[in-house]
């Protein structure tokens, strides 16, 4: 089903990422290499730096040291203590946040076409047609004219995913996109993500939902204290973790859920 996993060339290579907020060291030498077909789920304790990792990858945060390359091309580097970001590379990455972050003053359709029209110079008619097709696919066809405040959380999050997809990203980042949702709305968002997975969209997903992690991941990374503690297939990391710290974490999370 996931034939994208056969392509083994590196899509993202992160080397020695360091990042601190003042005295708080959040990333402490993070190395992750991601293949083109990978769907990486990042798990780990609260405050462990998962969101920071995604924000760095999205080019939203400066880093203190380390570098990231994307498709073999330098993306983020540190020169003389300054973070240099290749914005062209950044445009091929999409991100969905926990709190939707739709533009509240724009309708659903306008949210979707803003970036394609303003950034890529796409014609309004063609962007709108693509947007409508995406919304139809996500079961939101009838809501194109609605404003974000008129949508449920699950609908908002699906719109946010559609908005990111309008730019044809080569990599999608999801930071706890279902954490703010009522439980009965989680499935509709996860369904959309599983659909993307089926189309071999490379993704990095932060989630606390271990069932979902097991279903969507081709690889699970356990991150704690700003470093990668364990990295492997979901059966290993979620089922029979090698490291004591991972085991503790997994036991605790599953215990809470049980």
């Amino acid at each position: 089903m996931f034939d994208g996993t056969r392509d083994q060339t590196a899509l993202v290579r992160m080397e020695g990422l360091h990042k601190s907020y003042g005295a708080v060291k959040v990333l402490q030498g993070l190395d992750i290499e991601m293949k083109r077909g990978d769907r990486v789920v990042v798990i780990g304790p609260s405050g462990g730096g998962k969101s920071t990792l995604l924000r760095v990858l999205m080019g939203l945060e400066k880093v203190d040291a380390g570098n990231i390359s994307f498709g073999g091309r330098p993306y983020i580097t540190v020169r003389n203590g300054k973070t240099v970001i290749d914005t062209e590379v950044r445009r091929s990455i999409g991100m969905v946040f926990q709190h939707y972050t739709l533009f509240p003053h724009l309708s659903v359709l306008q949210n979707l076409v803003l970036a394609p029209c303003k950034v890529n110079g796409e014609g309004t008619a063609s962007a709108k047609a693509r947007a409508q097709a995406l919304l139809d696919r996500f079961g939101l066809g009838a809501r194109a004219g609605a404003y974000p405040a008129q949508l449920s959380g699950g609908q908002k999050q699906r719109v946010a995913i559609a908005r990111a997809l309008m730019l044809d990203p080569k990599l999608m980042l999801f930071d706890e996109v279902t954490s703010a949702l009522d439980p009965e709305l989680v499935a509709e968002v996860e369904q959309v993500m599983l659909e993307l997975a089926a189309q071999a969209m490379p993704m990095v997903i932060v989630t606390h939902d271990m069932w979902f992690a097991r279903n969507i991941a081709s690889r699970v990374i356990f991150c704690a204290g700003g470093v990668v503690v364990e990295d492997g297939p979901p059966e290993q990391v979620l089922g029979k973790p090698i490291h004591e710290r991972t085991r503790e974490f997994i036991n605790r999370v599953f215990h809470i859920r049980a």
């Binding site: 924000r55 939203l60 950044r90 990455i93 972050t101 803003l114 950034v119 990111a164």
Partner: peptide, 10 residues
């Protein structure tokens, strides 16, 4: 909102 703008490359 600013983060969303950056993520969309605006």
């Amino acid at each position: 909102q600013m983060d969303a703008c950056v993520a969309l490359g605006l």
